[in-house]
Design a binder for these strands. Structure first.
Length: 920
DNA sequence: CTTTCGCTAT
């Protein structure tokens, strides 16, 4: 080559870069500078591209400086190359500054700034740049359109997307394969599958990416059929599936939980030889773990010839998703010992999911330390996961500290905090975060609202936060969100305003199954079981399909009504719908049989021990407790622990109530003391009620008072009511007065306080005090809740009050009563007049006792219930000592099995004794 | 232009 012109140097440099000969290009640059060849923008731009590609940060900075010295900063090529470089390094403000200082901008530089902005999360700003570019009259090329179209897709901005699509059509560039491909993807993101299909059908030329874009769209929608149709069309057209195709197909199987299809796709991966691709293997691991086949996932993972960070992250999150937290953390440790890593923000975000419960708090701290070691604490995802971890560990102080240190936060961060406070029932702080985020310009989404709704628990919460929130929901148009409306129904119901719940429910135009479930659940929670079952009938008439939630709710309302017939019908219905294998339904059915007095039917339903969820163990324990079968309850508890199941709050309520119903005070206190230390369950108010009940029943009032003073929660009405009723059993006036005083301080209109106290006075024969109390009750217009008992025969319910003579068979019933009395006297029955509540002579007292509602029901039961079946009687108040004695004697003298249900438990009378061992 | 792992809620 005789003479080299400067432009031959430039061509050589850019040619080298284009071929990937980056070091040769830099050698040429050194040569040029040695020979004083003037630099130009084109050559320098090529070198910037080389630096960007190789990640040579210093090289890039050097070229930048060189550009300054050569006075070439205004050159559009070098400017664009630098924009690319800043964008890919995350230096957005440098890119912005450079861009707006450029004296001249062409379509390529506009595209470069859009890419720099959007790839760093400033997608809306990038769309703004596009609008500005059009205003400035710059004509888009295919690349620019492809970029902005995908922007609209990722923003899911339908209006902008359709506008840009129109621009594309006007320019005629939709004929470009790359532009059409990005339009397909955008339509997919906007959930406009029909537009995508129309475009795809009309394409004259399609490449593999076009096919992949279609498959990916159907895959995200979870539409298996269309996905596989496109796949076979693609293969028939001679286009072989590639890694991307397979990734979409595998993730579709993971999403749609289609195990059979998944293994088919797996074999397709193997046949195409692409199963060894890291990406494909990663999705396969994820697919198996999503299907709960962790063994397969593990096997694939360890057999991979190469693993990258994503593989490890997938495996860690697989363990977390399958509740195998210890293994997730072990995997993290293994990753740190290999050189396959390095662990990144995603790794720690997944690992933190393994520490999101109070007992894993120290693990969480350790992972937090690893994050600090690697300086990942400024990553938004990592911060949000840390926030989640600390709030799930109930440590809101730590969560707040993280939040204060965060450089930026988003709606997720705020939702985590609100959810954390909501879980602790701290509405005040949840609302603080809510108003703070609105002030900070962070738009609340439906999850924000759902969290706050869930935090409102009391009428006060409703008044101060719930109703204003409802107003906010209406104003912001969130009331069209089905989740939010249904959650409103629940919120009003939990806060005691069932009327508003019903009102909202009635106003819903298209009531979904969830709306029905919400209103049924609301009625169940308000003790309106009959209304709930009526709604259930309406739901069926409206032609809605039953689901497991609905069945479980209705089963639990028939349980609370002790309505065995409805319960059995519902259970039958669940079998018909194939929902009887659902663990919620099984549980509800078990609970129903238990509460309806059919312990044997309950036991028939228990799943295999290995498959019992915690609630199932709890149902079983509380079922035994209700019958006073302490040994069985305790054995079940021990069995549960030996199976590795963690007891929870409810488990201990059931277990302690079993102790209480059996009068086993030392057992009860031992279990109470071991709750927190051995099982990590902090005692709550319900546990304390059990202990107070237990001590009170045995008359150990000094210990009970000491316990109340020292217990970790404030005493509530249940505590005082329990103490008051046991003071009556032990005729302890001092304790009784004290308990009644405390009870009335909490609620001066608590009728139970007056009734129990008056009964206590009656037991102590202080008739004057009884009279005074009754007069006082009349003055403040309180009525004693009348006692009543009922029994069911086929579809008929017979109800009896005290001395009731309204029943159509009254004469026969009273005749039977006389017969009973005679037979019982033969075996030595003497009325226990200490149960009498009125000051009358002994004979009258006996007469009153003999007319108690449960005795009337018993007489009727003896008359009408076939001799081979159990007589089942229900009572709205606790049974008195005299009736209990009579029931025992009748079970012996008449040789009948009788079950009596009071609001707290079952009494099963057989051969003269009761399952409660005379302790209730 | 297509693609794998992830935070809040169900």
């Amino acid at each position: 080559m005789p003479r080299r012109t400067p432009s031959s140097w430039y061509t050589a440099v850019s040619g080298c870069v284009r071929c990937g000969l980056d070091s040769t290009a830099f050698a040429l640059l050194r040569d040029m500078r040695g020979r004083d060849v003037p630099l130009n923008g084109f050559a320098l731009a090529s070198l910037v591209t080389a630096c960007e590609r190789r990640g040579w940060e210093e090289g890039g900075a050097g070229i930048h400086a060189l550009t300054h010295r050569a006075g070439l900063m205004g050159n559009v090529y070098i400017g664009t190359a630098l924009l690319h470089m800043y964008g890919s390094r995350g230096l957005v403000s440098d890119a912005r500054m450079l861009f707006w200082e450029m004296p001249e901008r062409n379509v390529v530089s506009w595209t470069a700034i859009m890419v720099a902005l959007s790839s760093n999360g400033y997608v809306e700003e990038a769309l703004g740049a596009y609008r500005r570019m059009r205003r400035e009259g710059v004509t888009c090329n295919a690349n620019a359109f492809a970029t902005v179209v995908s922007l609209c897709g990722s923003l899911e901005d339908e209006v902008a997307g359709l506008q840009v699509a129109a621009h594309v059509v006007v320019s005629g560039l939709q004929r470009h394969v790359s532009v059409a491909n990005s339009l397909i993807t955008m339509f997919g993101n906007l959930r406009r599958a029909q537009d995508a299909e129309r475009l795809f059908d009309r394409m004259e030329e399609r490449d593999r990416i076009s096919w992949n874009a279609m498959i990916s769209m159907y895959s995200h929608e979870g539409v298996c059929g269309k996905c596989f149709t496109v796949l076979s069309d693609m293969r028939r057209g001679g286009v072989r599936p590639d890694v991307t195709t397979l990734c979409s197909l595998v993730s579709l199987c993971a999403l749609s939980d289609h195990v059979a299809l998944g293994s088919g796709v797996h074999s397709l991966c193997v046949r195409s030889g692409l199963h060894s691709s890291v990406m494909v293997a990663n999705v396969l691991v994820n697919m198996y773990s999503a299907a709960g086949k962790l063994d397969e996932a593990e096997c694939l993972f360890w057999n991979m010839s190469t693993r990258d960070a994503v593989s490890w992250n997938t495996m860690i999150s697989s363990y977390v998703q399958n509740d195998r937290n210890a293994e997730a953390l072990e995997t993290l440790v293994q990753l740190l010992q290999t050189d396959e890593g390095p662990p990144n923000h995603m790794t720690f975000s997944s690992a933190l999911g393994a520490c999101s419960s109070p007992e894993a708090f120290m693990d969480g701290r350790r992972v937090h330390a690893m994050i600090l070691q690697r300086s990942l604490q400024n990553d938004l995802l990592v911060c949000n996961s840390l926030l989640t971890m600390y709030s799930k560990c109930n440590s809101m102080e730590d969560a707040e500290r993280i939040f204060q240190l965060m450089l930026c936060c988003d709606v997720v961060s705020c939702n985590v905090l609100i959810g954390g406070y909501a879980a602790l029932e701290d509405v005040t702080n949840a609302m603080h975060v809510f108003s703070w985020m609105r002030g900070a310009g962070i738009k609340p989404n439906y999850i924000t609202v759902l969290n706050i709704q869930g935090a409102c628990k009391s009428p006060d919460d409703l008044h101060y936060y719930g109703r204003p929130l409802h107003a906010y929901i209406t104003q912001t148009g969130l009331s069209s969100d089905e989740y939010i409306t249904n959650s409103l129904i629940t919120m009003y119901a939990t806060c005691g305003d069932l009327e508003s719940s019903t009102d909202i429910f009635c106003r819903i135009n298209n009531k979904s199954a969830i709306s029905w479930n919400a209103i049924i659940a609301a009625n169940v929670r308000h003790g309106r079981g009959e209304e709930a079952l009526k709604l259930f009938m309406d739901l069926r008439h409206a032609g809605n399909k039953l689901d497991r939630f609905c069945l479980a709710e209705c089963l639990s309302s028939s349980a609370s009504l002790a309505s065995l017939e409805e319960g059995m019908q519902l259970h039958g219905l669940s079998v018909k719908c194939g929902l009887h294998y659902d663990s919620h339904v099984i549980n509800a059915a078990m609970d129903m049989y238990g509460k309806c007095g059919k312990m044997d039917d309950m036991l028939k339903l228990i799943p295999d021990p290995a498959w019992r969820p915690t609630q199932c163990w709890n149902t079983l324990i509380s079922g035994y407790a209700r019958y006073g079968y302490f040994k069985e309850a305790e054995d079940t508890f021990k069995h549960m622990v030996s199976m590795g199941q963690k007891p929870d709050y409810v488990t201990f309520v059931s277990l302690l109530s079993a102790c209480s119903h059996a009068g086993l005070v030392d057992k009860g206190i031992n279990y109470y003391n071991s709750m927190a230390s051995t099982f990590g369950v902090p005692p709550g108010i319900k546990h304390c009620v059990c202990i107070v009940d237990l001590l009170g029943r045995l008359g150990r009032f000094a210990e009970a008072e000491k316990f109340i003073e020292e217990m970790p929660v404030l005493p509530n009405d249940l505590i005082w009511r329990s103490l008051l009723s046991s003071s009556r059993t032990h005729k302890n006036l001092y304790i009784g007065r004290k308990a009644a005083k405390n009870l009335l301080e909490l609620d001066p209109f608590d009728d139970s306080a007056y009734v129990l106290l008056s009964n206590l006075y009656a037991t102590n024969a202080r008739w004057e005090d009884v009279d005074n109390l009754r007069t006082h009750m009349k003055t403040i217009k309180l009525n004693k809740r009348p006692a009543c008992s009922w029994l069911k025969l086929k579809n008929e319910v017979s109800t009896f009050g005290i001395g009731d003579r309204s029943h159509m068979h009254t004469q026969k019933i009273y005749a039977k009563l006389d017969e009973i009395l005679l037979k019982l006297r033969e075996v030595g029955y003497v009325a226990d007049t200490s149960s009498a509540l009125h000051d009358t002579d002994e004979e009258q007292k006996e007469q009153n006792l003999w007319n108690h509602s449960e005795k009337l029901a018993l007489a009727y039961g003896l008359l009408v219930v076939p001799e081979c079946s159990t007589i089942r009687i229900f009572k709205n108040l606790r049974v008195c000592a005299d009736c209990h004695l009579v029931f025992k004697l009748v079970s012996m003298v008449f040789d009948r099995e009788i079950v009596l249900r009071d609001p707290y438990r079952f009494h099963q009378f057989k051969h003269g004794s009761c399952s409660c061992s005379d302790f209730w």
